[in-house]
Design a protein around this nucleic acid. Structure first.
Lengths: 195, 195
DNA sequence: ACCTGAACACCGTTCAAGT
DNA sequence: ACCTGAACACCGTTCAAGT
């Protein structure tokens, strides 16, 4: 007879992971405090101890998580920007269930800091209007991922089916998505340089 | 003593208008079948007669509404594309409350048809990869509006305040947003021509 | 055909209480 | 400090019933 293993203590990180899993697997509409509690083997009310502002705080945390990206400075501002865009795209594609939050919530906390860092990085590398550039790069990544995920057929899963979401790196997304992304990124970087 | 005026009959259109008003004014999270019923002077259950699939159908209809754009063909494919992007941006900016739906729901119904129409229009005007171009243009508009609305400080209104949303055409958006948009659009169109 | 009223299962959140 | 249980106001949706 299996011993009752000691319960893993709840933590902000475990909560966010479980929430991402539910949102990606069943859609944001089915991400519920009670369901989240079940997934964590805990009563829903326990969550409030770690996220005092409740579901709003959870939503903010999810947007922050999927939107916070760090990248080492590259050889040029172009390479830095390229790496940052690729990382941002990867982070967003990994969790289509919270894409709506990521595109919609104003950056706060670590996400806002990461944006400032990236702006400084590009400015230090000699780019004139780094703030404008970061705005344009974020817009590009947001738009690209939005249409990509739309096209991939991802939608709030019906709930009846229990098929987990597989990131479109192999099979889900159309094969041209990567090259489309890189092509447009090249064009944008060229344009930002000339500005 | 005022006579009880005869109730305006419910219709799909009136429902959608009221829903947009609530979403823009108080945020999508507060758009509720019951609240929507109140706004329409009707019991919530009456809505199901006009939108049989209930709230899902409402969400689909909102995304479709804010995402369906028609434009007359211009002198060149560049002008057609430019007009289409401007109109799309305007439609999305007008209703920040449902932006998350618009960026996230795959185009269906009239929205899907409008996209096909625009693709044909560009192809007829001589553009080689019209489908790829429309994908890129949609991505550009989506991303631009997403960062713009984020920056404009719009967020699910707190609900305590009763300040209605004013579109950023005058006052809300930073003044550079329009020129930023046009600048990037020019660059994208140039890139699409050379491809 | 169109709308209502009552009912059901489920939701977010609070609060006092347990350990 | 961390979690539970009961409670409250509010959801989406159904269904039989009214007109």
């Amino acid at each position: 007879m299996p011993a009752k293993r000691p319960p893993i203590p709840l933590s902000r990180e475990r909560i966010i992971d479980a929430a991402l899993h539910i949102a990606d697997g069943q859609g944001l509409r089915r991400l519920t405090m009670r369901r989240l509690g079940d997934a964590l083997q805990v009563e829903a009310m326990a969550i409030y101890h770690h996220l005092p502002r409740g579901k709003d705080a959870l939503m903010d945390a999810l947007a922050e998580h999927v939107t916070t990206v760090h990248v080492e400075p590259g050889e040029s501002w172009q390479e830095s920007a390229r790496a940052w865009c690729r990382a941002s795209r990867a982070a967003l594609r990994e969790h289509p269930g919270v894409l709506a939050l990521a595109l919609t919530k104003p950056p706060r906390g670590r996400a806002a800091i990461a944006i400032r860092e990236q702006t400084d990085q590009l400015a230090d590398a000699g780019l004139a209007d780094a703030a404008g550039a970061v705005r344009a790069l974020r817009a590009y990544v947001f738009g690209a991922v939005a249409v990509e995920v739309q096209q991939s057929g991802w939608a709030e899963p019906s709930g009846d089916e229990n098929e987990p979401w597989r990131p479109p790196s192999q099979g889900g997304g159309s094969p041209g998505a990567d090259t489309d992304f890189e092509y447009g990124l090249d064009a944008l970087l060229a344009g930002l340089g000339r500005r």
